[in-house]
Amino acid sequence: MQPPSRRTFLALGLLLTAGGALTACTGSHDGDGGGPGDRRRPDPDEPVRLRAVTDTDTLLAGYDALLAGPGAGQAAQLQPLRAEVVQHRAALAAGLPTASVSPGTAASSASASLSLSPSTAPTSAVGTEAALASLERQTAQARLADLGAASPQLARLLASVSAAGVLHAVALGDDAPPTTPAPPPPVPSAAPTTAPSSPSGPASPPAAASGAGLSPEAVTALQRALSSEHAAVYGYGVVGARLPDDQQRADARTALAAHQARRDAWQRVLGGVGVTPSAAAAGYQLPFAVTDAAGAGRLAAHIETRLAAVYADLVAATTGPQRATAAGSLRDSALRARRWGAAATPFPGLPDPAVPTPGTTGTPGTTGPGTTPTPTA
Rank of each mutant, 00 (worst) to 15 (best):
E129M: 05
P369C: 14
D45V: 05
P205I: 04
T179Q: 04
A125W: 04
S215E: 06
A65L: 11
G297D: 00
A324L: 12
A130R: 15
A324T: 14
G69R: 02
R156M: 13
G37P: 00
P375D: 09
P192C: 12
A125H: 06
T56I: 14
P196C: 01
A94T: 15
L50M: 15
R331Q: 13
L135P: 13
D64A: 04
A334R: 07
P369D: 15
P42T: 08
V269S: 03
A207R: 01
Y234E: 03
D251S: 12
D174R: 07
A182T: 13
S197G: 14
G359P: 08
A76E: 09
P369N: 13
V219E: 02
S227P: 03
S189V: 08
L286F: 09
T8M: 04
P188A: 05
T363S: 14
Q77R: 15
A90P: 06
P356L: 08
P348H: 05
A316Y: 04
D174E: 12
V48W: 01
G283E: 00
T366N: 05
Q248C: 09
P364H: 07
A133F: 03
V166R: 08
H259N: 02
P196G: 02
T139A: 14
G365A: 05
E84S: 07
F288Q: 05
A207K: 01
T372D: 14
T345M: 11
A279F: 12
G297M: 01
P47G: 01
S329I: 10
L214C: 12
G71V: 04
A191Y: 10
T179K: 03
G95R: 09
L67A: 10
D55C: 03
T361Y: 02
P206A: 05
L16D: 05
L314W: 02
Y63M: 04
G297C: 02
H29N: 15
G320D: 14
Q74Y: 03
A91T: 11
A21H: 00
Y236W: 07
A301G: 09
P47K: 00
T56Y: 08
S160W: 09
R249P: 02
T179G: 04
R336N: 12
P321E: 13
A176H: 05
H230I: 03
L314G: 04
A107W: 07
P44N: 07
